[in-house]
Simulated assay, not measured.
Amino acid sequence: MPLWVAITVTAALFQTWRTALQQRLRGQLSLNGAAVVRYLYGVPFGLMILGGYWLLMGSSFGAPSAYFFLLCALAGITQIFGTNLLISSFGPRGFAVGTAYAKTEAVQASIIAVILLGEVLPPLSWVGIGISVFGVMYLSLAGKGLRLPDILRATLQPAALCGIGAGFCFAFTAICVRKANFELEGTDPVLKALFSVVVTNTMQTCMQGGWLLLREPAQVMAVFRSWRSSAQVGALSAAGSCCWFIGFALAPVALVRAVGQVEIIFTLLFSRFFLGEKLKAKDVTGALTVVAGVVLVLAGSL
């Protein structure tokens, strides 16, 4: 198994675990408060991971350019928007289905990567992506059928709009991350990816933390009071971001995001056993269809 595949699957696991913990934090914090903890508490863990890798490998890279910092800032702000949209999508249909809507990110990332990065996917991978889209649409239709009017109505549901918007933001984030990694001089893509994580998360802490201080000052103290739970979110967020960034450094964005859709399996498990949500048969069927598409994507790329 290629290293980037194992790292991507690990990233999906960490991301699902972190998102589930954030869903629990919604009972203690506002939307922005629950979102900012992943960056605020993630930076120290990211620094530890970066420092540990640097001490172990002894690699180095050149001085970052202004364009590198711009790309990190763009990645940071689009990820913030994506996270808020994802959390907002949970309410109408629950954690599992809200996340499934965001999985259109794989398609959006593939199209954006083709346009902006010139990445090319084999035909079988595109077939796999199409099957994954069908699985997502099946989830969004909630058993109402596959007629065009039903599809259009389902796409206009709040959960669908928030989830698809989150997918677009995450797709654009991935593109910026990959380009930022290429802006750093050096031969160790992992070290450059870890440095990009720390820079991006630091910027995100300043951006969303500043917004929270300005618009919801009472939430600032609530964020610090929840440090026991929030620290867990930060640790998982840092670990997941490091894996995602490394994956983007080692493989095309379209493939990484497509394989990352295995997150839906972890999502179903967390939804059922961690959050106690009841799953319907059609939700499981749609999720498995998404995963079948991922298998084809991977088969086409190997």
Rank of each mutant, 00 (worst) to 15 (best):
A171V: 10
L70Y: 03
A154H: 08
G98W: 07
L13N: 01
V259H: 02
T187K: 09
L269M: 13
T267I: 06
V284I: 15
T99I: 15
E277K: 07
L213I: 09
Y53Q: 09
A113C: 03
E119Y: 12
T202A: 14
V291S: 04
G167V: 07
L70N: 01
L141P: 00
L250H: 07
C242Y: 06
A102T: 12
Q204I: 02
E216C: 02
L55D: 06
I77S: 00
L40N: 03
D283Q: 15
L152T: 13
A66E: 02
P217E: 05
L161N: 08
A222I: 06
G145C: 10
V262G: 01
L70T: 07
A109I: 03
T202F: 13
A6H: 02
M137S: 06
F81Q: 02
A166Q: 02
G135T: 10
T8A: 10
L184W: 11
R93L: 14
A174I: 11
Q219H: 00
W54F: 05
N181I: 15
C72V: 09
R178T: 08
A6C: 07
I175H: 08
K278A: 13
L124F: 08
E183Q: 15
F245I: 10
A238N: 08
V259N: 01
G286L: 10
A218F: 05
Q261W: 04
L296Q: 13
P64R: 01
G62I: 08
A142L: 12
P44T: 14
L55N: 06
A174M: 11
F90M: 11
V256W: 05
L141H: 09
A174Y: 07
G276D: 13
A96G: 07
Q15R: 02
R225A: 09
L148M: 15
G260R: 04
Y41E: 09
A222C: 05
A231M: 14
R18V: 05
T173C: 04
L298C: 03
A292D: 09
V259E: 01
I129A: 01
G293F: 13
L25M: 15
V97Y: 01
I115Q: 01
S89V: 10
T205I: 02
L3V: 14
L40S: 10
F81G: 12
C243W: 07
L29V: 11
G300P: 01
Q204P: 00
V114R: 00
I115V: 15
T99M: 10
A239M: 07
M221V: 13
V284Q: 07
A35E: 08
V198Q: 01
R215W: 08
C162V: 00
S140I: 12
E277V: 10
G58Y: 03
A254W: 05
A113P: 00
T104Y: 01
V36P: 04
V37C: 02
K103T: 08
